[in-house]
Amino acid sequence: MAFIRARLDEDMNLALDCIVKDGRWRAEGTSLVLDTAAEIERVYLAIADHMARHDPARVIRRVEAHRAIVDAYTDATDLGTDARGAFVSDRATGLGIAVKKMAAEHSDHPDYEAEWSVEPEPGS
């Protein structure tokens, strides 16, 4: 959990550093602009659309949602395991898969461990 919490903290801090008072990022033509009308940089349209999609306010909402999933997983795992070592809560198993998928977003990070990867479900 420390790995994914650290990545979420990095995303949140970067998003908070990019917030402009009363501003929202959006693509306009070939530029990325703030709703405050301050042009940031001329970029290709596809890049501008991508950058606008990662508006700091949206990143903050994603980080908060992911933190809630990590917290729910931690709560579910606190219920313990049975004699076979399986979680007593099916919720812990499902949330564990979700948390591993979230960690996979950072598979290029030097602290990422390959054992966290989730094998695809049979038939998918």
Rank of each mutant, 00 (worst) to 15 (best):
T77N: 07
E105M: 03
L16T: 04
G85F: 09
T77C: 12
R53H: 13
V20W: 02
A57C: 08
P122N: 05
D55G: 00
A103W: 00
V99M: 01
T93K: 05
D22Y: 04
H50K: 14
M102G: 03
M12H: 01
R5G: 07
S107G: 06
R61A: 15
A104S: 14
L8Q: 04
V59H: 06
A72G: 09
E119D: 06
F3G: 05
D17L: 15
I40Q: 02
M102E: 10
N13S: 15
M12P: 00
G85Y: 09
V70K: 00
R58N: 12
V20N: 07
L34S: 07
A2T: 11
G23I: 02
K101W: 07
C18F: 04
E113H: 14
A48Q: 09
C18G: 02
I97Q: 07
T93F: 09
A83K: 13
A15W: 00
V43Q: 09
A104E: 15
S89E: 10
A37R: 10
E119K: 13
D90R: 11
R58P: 02
T30D: 15
A65E: 02
A57H: 15
S89V: 02
W116A: 04
D75W: 08
T30Q: 11
R62L: 13
A114M: 05
D17F: 08
R53V: 01
R7I: 00
E121N: 10
D108P: 11
A72W: 12
Y73A: 04
P122V: 04
D82H: 12
A114S: 12
H54M: 13
R62K: 11
D75L: 14
T93S: 12
A72H: 11
T36E: 03
D82E: 08
Y112N: 05
E41Y: 08
P110M: 04
A86H: 12
E113C: 11
A114K: 06
N13K: 14
Y112F: 15
A68P: 06
V59N: 03
V99D: 02
A57S: 06
L45Q: 15
V59A: 08
L16R: 10
Y112R: 08
E39S: 12
P120C: 05
A27L: 08
L95R: 00
L95D: 01
S107M: 07
I40F: 14
P56E: 01
I47W: 14
H66T: 13
I19Y: 00
D17P: 01
